[in-house]
Design a protein around this nucleic acid. Structure first.
Lengths: 163, 163
DNA sequence: TATTGTTATACTCTATAACTATA
DNA sequence: TATAGTTATAGAGTATAACAATA
């Protein structure tokens, strides 16, 4: 009996795990495609949102929060600072560290990203009626809690290999 | 009004898209972790399953089906052939092409993978009762169909960048 | 001594294009 | 001419370890 003839109803095609991974990864890809015209990667958005959420974090704090190597933060912040959406300001209490600040342009960019996210959300939710969508969110949230996933950090930012 | 104070109930933390991407990506990471002791990557599993599903495909057909560059198939097949789970056999009708065949060891390996997959599935499904699990699968399948995702191919195998 | 940001280096994974042998 | 498999090359992205300035 080979894979195709498997009698079990939980072959890969029917499994929750494979389905979830496929749909989840595809959702991320679509979001990245929508972001591309802004010359922005999902990881940039993750960083910008973390800065907004943490106030004026140091690069070390950001690295710890996002699960990235600190040396990786350097290049991302360089790029975003060159774009004028993020600023390194001196930390008056510790001259080794910076405070990262969003600029007005950065907040405006996050506004654009929010609109892109809303369109993405609408597209993804289109096949579901409101009740179904609520049910899906509720069940997914249950899984996320069971796995102790942080609420506002994407696990794809942390891994060792290239994206 | 900044991101944290957003009044909309569809901020990133509450969105279906972000939740789905997080849980889906994490599910894939967990599967990869479970596969690691076998010195196997999810992409190897995808390739082996495709070979099993397609019969005795050429590398070109495999590349097209998985959405990979043909040159990428070469290294993956090299590695799996060295392990003795896959064989290149001459195609009697076209001496340019190979037929890829699973070996007995390859089928045995896919058996191990199926057991790992079942454990993974059980772990992932643990927070849900059977009814909830069925509902989740049904809704996810609806999304997968709407996006025209192939049933047995993972979209993460196709992208341009490194995994 | 320890920590922050940075740089240097090496590694992994990938696609593209050129190559060969067949068709 | 076109196609299957292969190889060579270049590029992107990452972590690790070593560095200077500061604590």
């Amino acid at each position: 009996m080979n894979e195709r003839d498997a009698k079990h109803p939980t072959g890969p095609e029917e499994s929750l795990a494979f389905l979830l991974s496929k749909v989840g990864v595809r959702a991320g890809q679509r979001f990245a495609e929508r972001l591309a015209p802004l010359d922005l990667h999902p990881r940039d958005v993750g960083l910008l949102r973390a800065v907004a959420g943490l106030g004026h974090p140091s690069q070390q704090l950001l690295a710890a929060r996002l699960g990235m190597a600190p040396s990786r933060i350097v290049g991302l912040v360089d790029s975003l600072e060159r774009r004028g959406v993020l600023e390194r300001r001196p930390n008056p209490d510790d001259r080794r560290a910076y405070e990262l600040h969003l600029t007005d342009a950065g907040r405006a960019l996050l506004g654009k990203v929010a609109r892109i996210g809303a369109a993405h959300e609408a597209e993804l939710s289109a096949p579901l009626d409101p009740d179904e969508r609520r049910t899906l969110v509720r069940l997914l949230r249950r899984l996320a809690e069971a796995q102790q996933l942080p609420i506002d950090v994407h696990p794809g930012l942390a891994r060792g290999g290239p994206p």
